[in-house]
Design a protein around this nucleic acid. Structure first.
Length: 287
DNA sequence: AATCGGCACAACCGCAAGCCG
DNA sequence: CCGGCTTGCGGTTGTGCCGAT
């Protein structure tokens, strides 16, 4: 252990001696890196750093390439579908960012990590609860994610009516992502059966991934006869704990909570003011 | 116009696992 | 098997931008 520390210290001082550059990359450095990788391929980052003439560490070169310069990097805002996928995958794997990133083509683990820290943790902070608490996880699962599904549906429906291509209508009828959450809701979805009947029993990850990859054009629904019902939406929020196990559930329905389908670009504001007010009351009550 | 605070994102750091001679 | 080196991952920090005051 001491050896390891000593070696790292030596490595660090060697880096200092060779005037390693840190901080933001310049355009010239980017060009150098891109050209070098175009000629020699990626990998062997330390030797790449030495041979390319870049005064950067191999680590720095690797990070710059993977998180920024790669040609298949997807730029722009995280879409609703991507948000849903991130939430779903984070439920399964926690902070395994690179694993989550594998299911979002073109997105980097760094980007997903940043999204989680800035957006998701912000909501937890606003609710004055821990992001890893059961309460917040329930909030995400039973309020946030269904709301995302609603918005994805709404967006798809909008596309269908404006383009008249029928694709989104098909999605709405047969519901790939919607199937996940609506099906749960219509069977009095509880935290207990959620882990056994849907997530664990089906490959929801690949379903969601396919769904994302194909822009919701592929019907992976194992139950083709399934159809959405407007009235079932309220069941999204019927998260009463019926298991008599003494856990604190979130009863949205008995509080006369009604989901508000607000319009506009709400990709970021996943929960509106009334949601927060209600949730804060829930949390304060339960704390 | 200047300042401040929050946010988003790029980059760095420490650690651990994997690989290879 | 061991030790050194490389790579990958998750956490953290730094910085620029932008809106509010």
């Amino acid at each position: 252990m001491e050896d390891v520390k000593a070696r790292r210290k030596l490595q660090s001082s060697e880096e200092d001696q060779m005037d390693v550059i840190r901080g933001p990359w310049t355009v010239e450095e980017d060009f150098k890196l891109i050209n070098y990788i175009a000629l020699h391929g990626e990998g062997r980052w330390n030797s790449l750093a030495r041979c390319s003439g870049l005064k950067r560490t191999g680590k720095s070169c690797r990070l710059r390439w993977l998180n920024y310069l790669r040609p298949d990097i997807r730029r722009g805002n995280i879409t609703l579908e991507e948000q849903l996928l991130i939430l779903e995958l984070h439920f399964r794997w926690g902070n395994r960012w690179s694993k989550i990133a594998q299911h979002l083509p073109g997105r980097t683990d760094n980007e997903i990590k940043n999204y989680w820290r800035t957006r998701v943790q912000k909501h937890a902070k606003q609710l004055k609860c821990d992001v890893n608490s059961k309460q917040f996880k329930d909030t995400m699962r039973y309020l946030w994610m269904p709301r995302l599904v609603e918005r994805i549906q709404a967006a798809s429906a909008s596309v269908a009516t404006t383009t008249d291509n029928g694709t989104a209508q098909m999605f709405l009828r047969q519901g790939v992502v919607g199937n996940e959450y609506t099906a749960r809701a219509t069977t009095s979805y509880t935290p207990e059966n959620s882990s056994t009947t849907t997530v664990a029993s089906s490959d929801s990850v690949s379903d969601l991934t396919n769904c994302y990859n194909n822009g919701f054009h592929v019907n992976n629904n194992p139950n083709p006869g399934y159809s959405f019902q407007a009235s079932s939406q309220v069941d999204y929020y019927n998260c009463n704990n019926n298991n008599n196990h003494g856990d604190v559930g979130m009863d949205f329905q008995t509080n006369n909570y009604q989901p508000l389908l607000d319009g506009g670009d709400l990709s970021d504001n996943l929960l509106n003011a009334e949601d927060f007010l209600f949730l804060q009351q829930q949390f304060n009550f339960n704390m």
